[in-house]
C-alpha cells in the first residue's frame, strides 16, 4: 500500500485560497492511513471553519473514489460532479492527484497529502513501515526477504555500515533496526550465511531513473511466450 501523510491545514488552505467551491475526493484504494469519504468530509469541515474565521464564503462536496489511480474509475466516479466546482482537492497519493489532473484537465487538482513510501502497517510498533523502494532489481531473494534498499538508510548492497550499534541505525537516534544486521540474523538462522558473505556488485541505476514506463506490449509478449511454451509442452 502507499503510505501518505496529510498536509497541514494551512498549506492546503493556502493552495485553495482563490477558490470558494471545491470538490474533495477521497480514495478507497491502497492509500494508508484510510483517506475515504469520512476523511474528505473532515477536511471539508476544517477548511470551512477556517474560511469562516477569515470571513470568507466556502462550499465543498466530499466524495470518494474506489481507486483514484485508475483513470476509468476516477472519470466514472467524478465526471458528473466536477463541473459544479472551481477546483478539486485529492486525498489520494501523488498518482491519484495526477490521474485526476489528466482526466479533468480543465480544473486544477490540489494534493491534500504528501506521499511517503510503499509500506504496510506494523501493529506491534503501531506505525506504518517502509518496505519497498521500487529499485527495479529486487534483491529479496538474496537477502532473506528483508530489503536493504528500503530498510537501510544508506541503501547499502554490502552492509552493515560502521554506523550500527547493537543492531540499531545511526540515523534516527539508534531507534530503528539495522536492516543488514537483521539480514545477517535471518540468514544465519536459516543456514544461508553464504548469501550474506557474497559480494554484491554495483547496481544499475538506470532501472530507477525517472520518468519510467513499461510498455503494455511487453506484458503481452510474456503472455504469448507462456502460451507458446504451454502449447509445445
Amino acid at each position: 500500500m502507499i503510505v501518505t501523510k496529510l498536509k497541514s491545514l494551512e498549506e492546503i488552505y493556502d493552495m485553495i485560497k482563490p477558490y470558494s467551491n471545491v470538490l474533495i475526493a477521497g480514495c478507497d484504494g491502497c492509500c494508508q492511513p484510510p483517506r475515504g469519504i469520512h476523511e474528505a468530509n473532515n477536511l471539508g469541515k476544517m477548511l470551512k471553519l477556517k474560511k469562516m474565521v477569515d470571513g470568507e464564503k466556502f462550499d465543498y462536496k466530499a466524495t470518494t473514489v474506489l481507486r483514484q489511480c485508475d483513470d476509468k474509475i476516477a472519470a466514472t466516479a467524478l465526471r458528473s460532479l466536477v463541473d459544479d466546482y472551481d477546483a478539486i482537492i485529492s486525498m489520494a497519493c501523488g498518482i491519484g492527484v495526477q490521474i485526476l489532473t489528466k482526466v479533468f484537465p480543465e480544473k486544477l487538482t490540489f494534493p491534500a497529502q504528501n506521499t511517503m513510501f510503499n509500506g504496510a502497517a506494523d501493529h506491534e510498533k503501531n506505525s506504518y513501515v517502509e518496505y519497498c523502494n521500487q529499485c527495479g532489481d529486487c534483491l529479496l531473494g538474496i537477502t532473506g526477504g528483508i530489503c536493504p534498499v528500503a530498510g537501510c538508510a544508506k541503501s547499502l548492497m554490502n552492509g552493515p555500515c560502521g554506523g550500527q550499534i547493537d543492531g540499531k541505525c545511526e540515523v534516527g537516534d539508534y531507534k530503528i533496526d539495522c536492516a543488514w544486521v537483521n539480514i545477517y540474523k535471518r540468514l544465519k538462522k536459516l543456514g544461508r550465511l553464504d548469501l550474506f558473505e557474497k559480494y554484491r556488485p554495483k547496481r544499475d541505476y538506470r532501472l530507477m531513473t525517472s520518468p519510467s514506463f513499461i510498455d503494455f506490449l511487453e506484458l503481452d509478449e510474456i503472455e504469448e511466450e507462456i502460451n507458446e511454451k504451454e502449447a509445445k509442452a
Binding site: N158, G162, Q164, W180, Y184, K185, K188, L193, F196, K198
Partner: peptide
C-alpha cells in the same frame, strides 16, 4: 575501516562484512 565496538550478532555481521571487503 571497521567498528569493533559491538557485541553478539551485530559484531558477527560487521566481521563478515570485513571479510567481504
Amino acid at each position: 575501516a571497521v567498528n569493533p565496538n559491538n557485541e553478539g550478532e551485530p559484531l558477527e555481521a560487521e566481521i563478515a562484512k570485513l571479510g567481504r571487503k
